[in-house]
Amino acid sequence: MSTQTILEVSGLRAGYGGVPVLHGCDLEIREGETVGIAGLNGAGKTTLLRALSGAIPRSCDRALLRGDRLPSRPDAVARLGLVHVPEGRKVFPTLTVRENLRYGAVAAGKAGGAAREERRVLDAFPRLAELADRRAALLSGGEQQMLAVARGLMARPVLLMVDELSLGLSPKAALDISAVLARVARTQNLSVLLVDQNTTLLGARCDRGYIMRDGLAEPIDDAFGHDTLSAAYF
Rank of each mutant, 00 (worst) to 15 (best):
E143K: 01
A182Y: 02
M161K: 00
R186L: 14
L101F: 12
A148N: 01
R69A: 15
A136W: 01
G11I: 11
R73Y: 02
A76F: 06
Q144A: 04
E164D: 08
L216G: 06
L147C: 14
L65K: 03
S2R: 14
A129L: 13
K110C: 03
V85L: 05
G168D: 11
G54S: 14
V9E: 03
D75N: 06
E33Q: 12
A107L: 07
P71D: 10
A204L: 10
A114I: 09
P219Y: 01
H226Q: 14
A107W: 08
Q4A: 11
A51K: 07
E164G: 06
P171F: 05
V184I: 15
R183M: 08
I177K: 10
L48G: 01
A182R: 15
A124D: 14
V97K: 03
S59E: 15
E118I: 00
L193T: 07
G141R: 03
V195Y: 10
V180Q: 08
T46C: 02
P86V: 04
S230W: 13
A43Y: 10
S166W: 07
A182P: 07
L138K: 03
L64P: 13
A38M: 09
D207W: 03
K45Q: 10
D227K: 04
A43S: 15
E143C: 01
L153K: 05
A107K: 00
A204H: 07
P71R: 04
A179E: 15
R98D: 04
L95T: 07
A114K: 13
M1I: 08
D133F: 00
T94I: 05
D222M: 00
R208W: 15
V192W: 11
S191W: 07
I56N: 07
A76R: 13
Y210A: 09
D133R: 08
L49D: 02
A232E: 12
A232C: 13
V180F: 02
R151I: 09
I211W: 06
